[in-house]
C-alpha cells in the first residue's frame, strides 16, 4: 500500500491533475523506429500481398464483369480442374511421403547409423546441392537417364535385351514424374533430419535400456515422439515443394500431366480456360491449400521447438 501511494506521488506531478489515473504513463513522443522495417514491408506489400489480393478479388469476377461465386464453384464442378487439383495433391502426397521415408533412412544412416564421418559430410553437402536442383536441368537429366535413348534405358536394353519402351511404356507419367520430384525431395529431408537425429541424446537411450526397454521401445516411446513434429513439419515442406513445382513438371512432361500449376502456367500464356476469373480462382485455390498446410506446419514447428536446446 505504501509503495502504491509513493508511486502515485511520484507520477502525479507529471500527469495532469484530475481525470486520468495517476499511474498511466505519459504519452510517448512519436518514434520513427518503425521506418527501418518500411522497405521490407513495402516490398512484401507490392510483390506478395497485392498480387494475392488481386487474385482473391478477381476470383469473384464474372466473365462480363460483376460479382459471382461461380468461379469458386467451378473449381469443384469442372472435371478438368478438379482432376488437375487431384493430380497435384496426389503427386505431392506420394513424393512427400516417399521423400520423407527415404530421406529419413538416409539421414539415419549417415548420422547414427554407424557410417564414417566423411560419408556424412559428403551426403549433407550433396543433399544441399540436390535439394536445389530443380526445373529444366533436372527434367533434362532424367530424360537423359530414362528417356527413350537415355543411359539407363540403353544399359537395360544392352544387358537384359529388353526394350522397356516397346510396349508403349513411357516415363512421362505419374510414376516418372514422381521419380523426378524425388530427386529434390529426399535431400531436403536429409538436410532437416540429420541435425534432428543428432539431437537425440545418448542418455535417453541409456535411460530406456536401464528401465529394461529394447530398441523397439526406444523408438516407439522416445525417439519417434520426439522426432514426430520435425518429421511432420518436414513432410509438409516436401508437400509444398512438390505442390508448387511448375518448371520441372512442365519441362518433363509438357502438358501430358495436367497438374494445377501447369494449368495456371497455361493460363498465363493465354486464357486456356476462356474465363480469366476461373484462372484466378484456380490460383486462389492453390494459395488456400498451401495456407492450410502451413497452419499445420506452424503448429508442428511449435511442438518441435520444445526439444530444441
Amino acid at each position: 500500500m505504501d509503495q502504491v501511494l509513493r508511486a502515485n506521488a511520484t507520477t502525479s506531478d507529471e500527469s495532469t491533475p484530475g481525470d486520468a489515473p495517476a499511474a498511466r504513463p505519459l504519452r510517448k513522443s512519436f518514434s520513427w523506429t518503425w521506418a527501418g522495417l518500411a522497405p521490407f514491408f513495402l516490398f512484401a506489400l507490392l510483390f506478395l500481398l497485392l498480387p494475392s489480393i488481386s487474385i482473391f478479388v478477381r476470383s469473384f469476377e464474372a466473365p462480363g464483369g460483376g460479382f459471382t461465386f461461380q468461379n469458386i464453384l467451378d473449381i469443384f464442378l469442372e472435371k478438368d480442374i478438379r482432376n488437375a487439383y487431384k493430380l497435384s495433391l496426389e503427386i505431392s502426397v506420394v513424393t512427400a511421403l516417399g521423400g520423407a521415408i527415404f530421406g529419413f533412412l538416409l539421414a539415419y544412416a549417415v548420422t547414427i547409423g554407424g557410417l564414417p564421418k566423411g560419408v556424412r559430410n559428403f551426403m549433407l553437402t550433396f543433399s544441399g546441392v540436390a535439394s536445389n536442383f530443380a526445373g529444366v536441368p533436372l527434367a533434362f537429366a532424367f530424360v537423359a537417364t530414362m528417356g527413350n535413348i537415355g543411359l539407363v534405358t540403353r544399359i537395360i536394353e544392352a544387358v537384359l535385351h529388353v526394350d522397356i519402351h516397346a510396349q508403349g511404356f513411357t516415363i512421362y507419367t505419374f510414376t516418372g514424374l514422381s521419380i523426378v520430384y524425388m530427386y529434390f525431395q529426399f535431400p531436403l529431408m536429409v538436410l532437416v533430419m540429420a541435425p534432428a537425429l543428432d539431437g537425440l541424446r545418448r542418455e535417453w537411450r541409456e535411460a530406456c535400456e536401464n528401465l529394461g526397454g529394447g530398441t523397439a521401445h526406444y523408438w516407439r516411446y522416445i525417439a519417434l515422439p520426439i522426432l514426430a513434429p520435425t518429421l511432420l513439419g518436414t513432410t509438409i515442406l516436401l508437400f509444398g515443394n512438390a505442390f508448387g513445382a511448375y518448371a520441372t513438371a512442365y519441362a518433363f512432361t509438357g502438358s501430358f500431366l495436367n497438374l494445377a500449376t501447369i494449368v495456371i502456367g497455361a493460363q498465363i500464356q493465354g486464357d486456356v480456360l476462356y474465363n480469366p476469373g476461373l484462372g484466378n480462382a484456380m490460383a486462389l485455390g492453390m494459395i488456400v491449400i498451401m495456407a492450410l498446410v502451413m497452419v499445420v506446419y506452424a503448429w508442428s514447428q511449435r511442438r518441435a521447438a520444445r526439444w530444441v536446446q
Partner: peptide, 11 residues
C-alpha cells in the same frame, strides 16, 4: 512458400 512461384507470377 505459401504462394507457389507460378501462382505469384500469375498474380
Amino acid at each position: 512458400f505459401v504462394i507457389p512461384a507460378v501462382v505469384l507470377t500469375f498474380g
